[in-house]
C-alpha cells in the first residue's frame, strides 16, 4: 500500500524544525508502524540522508520508549496501543499521516521525534518509592492485602512512563503519570507511612518541571496506552490537599 508521511524533522534542541514529506514505498499492512519507519530510514540512509530519529526499544508496548503523535493522536489511532504495537493495517491506501513529537514545554525536542522525558525521573526521585532498604523486609505473606486493592494498585502501576498523557493534554499536565505512582502506593498498606510526603513531593516537582494543571479534560485517559483512569488523579487531588491541609509537616524533600 502507498501512504504519504509528514514527519517532524529537527536537528537538535536549538534549531528550528519543520515537517518534511516522504512517500515510503512498499508498505505492508502487517508491518508495525515503527517497522514502516525502519524501512523508510533504510531508504534515507542509502540516499545519504540522516535517518529519522525516534525513541524505541522493546517494541512490545511495555518499555514506554516509543513516543510519537500520529495525526494528532499520541501513539496513533488505536485504543490502548503504543506506537510500536500499532500496525499499518490500521491505515488505508493513500492515507496522509502527520507524525510529530510529544509537544510540551517540559519535554523539549532532542532530535526529530525524540523528546527529553527526564522530568519523569526527577518526579519519581521526589517520592515515587517506599523507603525500605534492601534486606529489611518482613516475610511477604505477613501482610495480607485484599485482592481488590492489589488489583487496583496493579492497574495504576501498569503505567509505562511514556508521556502520552502529557502529549494529549492541552495543558501539558503530567497529572495522570504522577497519579499512577501516588495511587499504586496509596492503595497498598506498604505505601501508607509516606503517603502524604509522596503526594507533596511528587506534585511539587511536577509543577516545578513546568507541566500544567489538570483541568479534567480527560484526553490523557483516552490516549494512555495502558488505559489508566483519571480516578487516580482524583486520588492525587485528595491526597495532596489532605497533606497540605493537615500534614504540612510532611513536606520534606526526599534527600533526608
Amino acid at each position: 500500500m502507498k501512504i504519504k508521511l509528514h514527519v517532524w524533522r529537527q536537528k537538535n534542541a536549538k534549531s528550528a524544525g519543520k515537517l518534511e514529506t516522504y512517500s515510503p514505498s512498499d508498505v505492508n499492512p502487517n508491518m508495525s508502524f515503527l517497522e514502516m519507519l525502519d524501512v523508510l530510514n533504510e531508504d534515507l540512509i542509502k540516499k545519504g540522508e540522516d535517518a529519522i530519529s525516534f525513541d524505541h526499544d522493546c517494541r512490545e508496548g511495555i518499555c514506554g520508549s516509543c513516543s510519537m503523535v500520529i495525526n494528532g493522536r499520541p501513539h496513533g489511532p488505536s485504543k490502548g496501543t503504543t506506537a510500536c504495537q500499532l500496525h499499518m493495517r490500521s491505515f488505508k491506501e493513500g492515507d496522509e499521516l502527520y507524525i510529530e513529537p510529544w509537544r510540551a514545554g517540559a519535554f523539549p525536542v532532542v532530535k526529530d521525534l525524540i523528546v527529553d522525558r527526564t522530568p519523569f525521573d526527577r518526579i519519581m526521585a521526589k517520592g515515587g518509592f517506599v523507603s525500605v532498604n534492601t534486606g529489611s523486609a518482613q516475610d511477604a505473606n505477613a501482610l495480607p492485602i485484599s485482592k481488590d486493592l492489589a488489583d487496583k494498585s496493579f492497574e495504576a502501576a501498569a503505567c509505562i512512563g511514556c508521556g502520552a498523557c502529557v502529549a494529549a493534554c492541552k495543558n501539558s499536565s503530567a497529572m495522570l503519570f504522577v497519579s499512577t505512582k501516588v495511587s499504586q502506593l496509596a492503595l497498598l498498606p506498604q505505601g501508607q507511612p509516606e503517603r502524604m510526603r509522596r503526594a507533596l513531593g511528587m506534585l511539587r516537582q511536577h509543577d516545578e518541571e513546568g507541566f500544567g494543571a489538570c483541568t479534567n479534560t480527560k484526553a490523557c485517559e483516552a490516549a494512555c496506552p495502558k488505559e489508566i483512569s483519571i480516578e487516580n488523579i482524583a486520588r492525587l487531588n485528595r491526597d495532596f490537599m489532605k497533606a497540605t491541609l493537615f500534614y504540612p509537616e510532611h513536606e520534606t524533600s526526599a534527600s533526608e
Binding site: 517506599v130 525500605v132 534492601t134 523486609a137 511477604a140 496493579f154 502501576a157 499504586q184 497498598l188
Partner: peptide, 8 residues
C-alpha cells in the same frame, strides 16, 4: 523485598 517496595 519486592512486596515491601509495593510491587503489586
Amino acid at each position: 523485598q519486592a512486596v515491601a517496595q509495593g510491587v503489586p
